[in-house]
Amino acid sequence: MIQIAVFAVIAAVAVIAGVFLVLTRNAVHSALFLVGVQLCLAVLFLLQGAFLVSVLQIMVYAGAIMVLFVFVVMLLGVDKKEALIEPLRWQRPIAAGLGLLLAAEAIYLALSQHIHVGSGGLQAGPHEGNVQAVARVLFTNWALPFEATSVLLVVAVVGVMVVARRKMV
């Protein structure tokens, strides 16, 4: 009962923040609305009893990645007006097509019987605890994708260093 009420409120806030994220013209405000969406997602995870994922959502997305977004936007200086020139002309129709596809998919999933939408609550959580369960899955079943992701990040970091400090090399 309470869970459904919280879900309704948080979901509504998340959707509204998402809409404003697209509509607002100030880059920092957009980033802040994105932070709002991330925090709402964290609360939704919390409703599912997924404490670890919820806190990681706050820490990693809201706390680290979005801070870097805001940092870069601040560092580069942000004007109140958005640039009206579109550097990548072909991306708009593709974005519209993909967006429609995503919407169709979401509607299909919502209407189909395969996915049960609802909150499982604390009972549905793993018995040994969130941290242990996530760790077990991450480092056994999904060890290879996990390591591949970390390699990808390292490659990205090295690539950035090469691009940014070419003169020094």
Binding site: V55, I58, G63, A64, V70
Partner: peptide, 11 residues
């Protein structure tokens, strides 16, 4: 996590 959110206030 709350410590990392505190960065927002300052920034």
């Amino acid at each position: 996590a709350m410590g990392s959110l505190a960065v927002y206030g300052v920034v």
